[in-house]
Every structure is written in structure tokens, then in C-alpha cells.
Design a binder for these strands. Sequence first.
DNA 1: TGTACATCAGTGAACGCGCGTTCACTGATGTAC
DNA 2: TGTACATCAGTGAACGCGCGTTCACTGATGTAC
Lengths: 205, 205
Amino acid sequence: MAKQGYHHGNLRQALVEAALDLIRAQGPQGFSLSDAAKAAGVTPAAVYRHFAGRDDLIAECARQGFVIFADVMERAHDGGRPSALKAFEATGRAYLGFARAYPGHYMAMFESGLRVSATPELAEAARRAGAVMTRAAQALAEHLPENRRPPAAMFAAHVQAMSHGIVELYARGAPGARSPFPPEELLETGIGIYLRGLGLLPADE
Amino acid sequence: MAKQGYHHGNLRQALVEAALDLIRAQGPQGFSLSDAAKAAGVTPAAVYRHFAGRDDLIAECARQGFVIFADVMERAHDGGRPSALKAFEATGRAYLGFARAYPGHYMAMFESGLRVSATPELAEAARRAGAVMTRAAQALAEHLPENRRPPAAMFAAHVQAMSHGIVELYARGAPGARSPFPPEELLETGIGIYLRGLGLLPADE
DNA sequence: TGTACATCAGTGAACGCGCGTTCACTGATGTAC
DNA sequence: TGTACATCAGTGAACGCGCGTTCACTGATGTAC
């Protein structure tokens, strides 16, 4: 971008990408700052020109993940088109799609063990990403009669929990018995049944 | 038990318990074999009398976790009493209860990154634990008309995924925006809505 | 009951390793005159 | 346009550390006679 052909070009982003590759391949704990530096063709010490240390580098990976995540979800929701219901379902699918398409980011975000409060930038990115799903749930909730409308934040949390659980248990080589169903199908049917329970889908199959 | 007052008494189990404490306190990656040995009042080398190495020790922690887990779930299900529905709901609650009561085991089982196939004993324990929930789902599924009865393994997976997701996202200090709802309430309402969607609960609130 | 011996759980020292981090430096780039 | 200087990204060597693992050993326990 702006700085090109300096010493390295754009080492900061190169380090982030090297870290993401390593995290994807070896998990967030298998990742080492030295390896990331080597992958970027640079001495470990050079990392400290751009990051406060190892944790700061992971935090930046996670932050970029939340930014992309929010964007992907936003795009899937598409302003509630063609309907609040379809848009919501698309948002759920996008969750799983994001986990598949950006495994390094996903792991940095949810499996690295770092607190969302690690840096203010990370906290802000996470907050904005969370808001997207809550808004989608909010729009959908308005189709329910007010007296049996659960808080939007609650059913956003339900769907997020089921999505995350499916990713962790069934879309990865995690322990806990692999499912005989493809993750996508699990999520699709799971959310379908859930929405029927809310009264947002007809009761019959 | 059998061996008492040998050199240590029962170092094997003491090491497992020390490891579980450390895993709970510092996460599965913060855990070190040397620390576990020290906590058990023993030299690191002594660990190798009882375990093949670090991974083997973690695998044993996870294995014991799956055994307890299966037991807790079994007991909650209580042979389907007082009804298949109530028993199933109790099983879901027991999942969260287990995660709360045995955090070290839970982390060793689901967050340590080890494969369920690490040791045959672990694989077997995991399989048996999984079977408990599937059986509960099976019993419940039989209350549904056959033509709209999803495979038991599928809705066991749905409930397990939601439970796991709630544990990871909201019952721990994980990133990804803490929920304004207590995890227990989230799970209770989430499973409630899901079961309503299945037609196992009346449609009205 | 007493002694000699076998077993084997735990010791203590040592190993090689890769880690994150520091520091004084160097040398390419950008800027002022 | 040309020169002197300031900046600062990246170097390379070094650090202290804790890790998992090995090895020859020792000494308490259990067993055979």
C-alpha cells in the first residue's frame, strides 16, 4: 500500500499472515513468534518494531478476524433481504462459512485463549461483530407477537452457541466423537428446528 | 486403595489430580509436566514411571473426564424418568453442570487439542459418553410421529453443540462478547425453543 | 521369626532445545538545505 | 541537482528460562527360604 519497497515492504501485515498460517496449521499454542518471523523472512527481533510481543501479534490476528467476520455476516444478512427470516438463516450459514474460509482467524479469535479485552482495538472489533448478529436477530424478533418474543440478544446467543459448538465439535478434528452428519447440514437443520420452535417457521416439515 | 504407603501411595492418581488443577488454573497449554510433578511432591522423572509422557498424562485426565461425564449424564437421565422429555432436559442441564463442576476435566477433554484417538482407552471412554446422550435422544425421538422424526444422533448433536457453544462462549472468560444472560438460562431457553421446534413441547409459552 | 535377595518407585543431575525478549548496531530510505 | 544529516526498519548475537526427556543410581518395600 502506502509503504512499498522499504526494507521489507509491509512487514507488519506479512507477519500477521505468517502467524495466521502457523495458527491454522498448528493451533494457537503451536504458534511461535520466531517461526512467524522466519516465515516472513525476518529476524525474530524485527517483530518488535511492529508488535509489543507475541500476544500483541495474536491479538492483531484476532482483530482482523473480527473485522472480516463482521463484514461477512453483514454481507450475508444483506440488510434483511429477501426477508428477515432468510437473511437470518444466511447469517447462520455465514458463520460456518467464515470458520471454514478463515480457520487461522477463527482460531485466533476463539481458541487462542486471549481475552477480548487484550487490546482496545480487539475489543472494539469484537463488539462490532457481535452487534451484527444481534441486529439480525432483532429484525427477526419483530415478526413475533410481542408477548412471546424473547430478547434478541438471547436468541442471537443461542444461534451463535450452536454454530460455535458445531464448528468446535464437528467441523474440526476435535475429540468428542465426530458426527455422522456434515457440519453444514447439522447447522441448517438445527437452526431450522430452533426457528420453528420460535414460531418463525411453520410447524409442519 | 490397593497400594498404600509405598513410596508415595498412589502417585499416578496424584499426578492426574495435580494436572487437572493446573489445567483448570492455566489452561491445557499452560500445563507443564514439571509443574504437575512438583505439585505432587515428586521429581519430573518420576512421572515416567506412570505415563509415557506429557500427552499420555493429559489423555488420562481426559479419559477420567469422559468416564465421569458419562456417569453424570447417565444419572441425570435416570432411565428416562419421570418422562423422556424431562429426562432429556435434565441431561442437557447436566452437561453444563459437568463443565462447571469439573473444569479441569472438561478442558482436558475438549480444549487440550488432543485427539480422541490418542489412546484406545480414551477413545473407548469418549465413545461410551457419546452413547449416553444419543440414547436419551433416541428415547425422546420415539415420541415423535415417525415421518417427522429426525435421526436421534442428529438432535443429540444439536443439543451437544449448543451446550458446548454456551460453555465455550459464555461460561468462560473466552473472547467473543460475554452474554448478558447466565449460561444456565441460555441453555434452558435454548433447548426449550429447540424442543418446541421438534414438536415435543406445546407451541404456546 | 529372621535373613538375603529381588523388585521397582522415585532421585538427582544432566541434556539439548526452542522459546520470548534485549540490545547495541547498521545501513537503506526520506528530508532539509 | 547534490550533499549532509536524521530516521528508523531490520540485524545478529546473546540472555535466561523452563521445558520434556534420559540415565545411572538408591533405597524402601515385598518375597522366598
